[in-house]
Design a protein around this nucleic acid. Sequence first.
DNA 1: CTTCAGATGCTCT
DNA 2: GAGCATCTGAAGA
Length: 193
Amino acid sequence: MDKLPREFYLRDTLTVARELLGKLLVCHTGKERLVCRIAETEAYIAANDKACHAYQYHRTKRNEVMFAQGGTAYIYQIYGMYFCLNLVTEPKGEPCAVLIRGMQPVEGTDVLSRNRFGVPFDDLSPAQRKNFLNGPGKVCRALRLTREQNGADLTGNMLHVADAPAPDRINVGTRIGIDYAEEARDFPWRFWI
DNA sequence: CTTCAGATGCTCT
DNA sequence: GAGCATCTGAAGA
């Protein structure tokens, strides 16, 4: 599989968020290789986006790795019990990122299912299959991504994105769960297949 | 299909 | 101490 190079991530965040759709997220954390097609993303951009953890370049312990160069994993804990995976974009010092909100399983489906439900995919109910990886917390749970992988280099072997054909058509809408972000609530920065 | 409450702990002020 | 880039199961329409 063709690993996307550093340069892919060093570009404009909205472009990266759109182009990640259809690409393959490859995770080598455990024994088996896990591969999923990226199906939903959101862009977070430092300069003018009140929903971004690094809004106006505000730097804290939590968002520290957003200040690394593009092609770095930013994983943070939310609501005490879930994690969210972001891919840092743009050159070093521009603390922007793309949140991975949803995926479709491609390889290692039973491992993904066991990570999430403790049973193989065949044992899941229709509802569980329908909502298998359609949320950022579910993505991290299925891939076993936690704060331990925060700061991982996406040009390394543990976690990377492989090239794949772009989807025919993408959908655009507002981002989820950022009602506090005033005017940024309405930015059309969510993309999905 | 929808809404709703509760879980749970870290981070920032 | 408040709030959070969420998820689940239960209950209602």
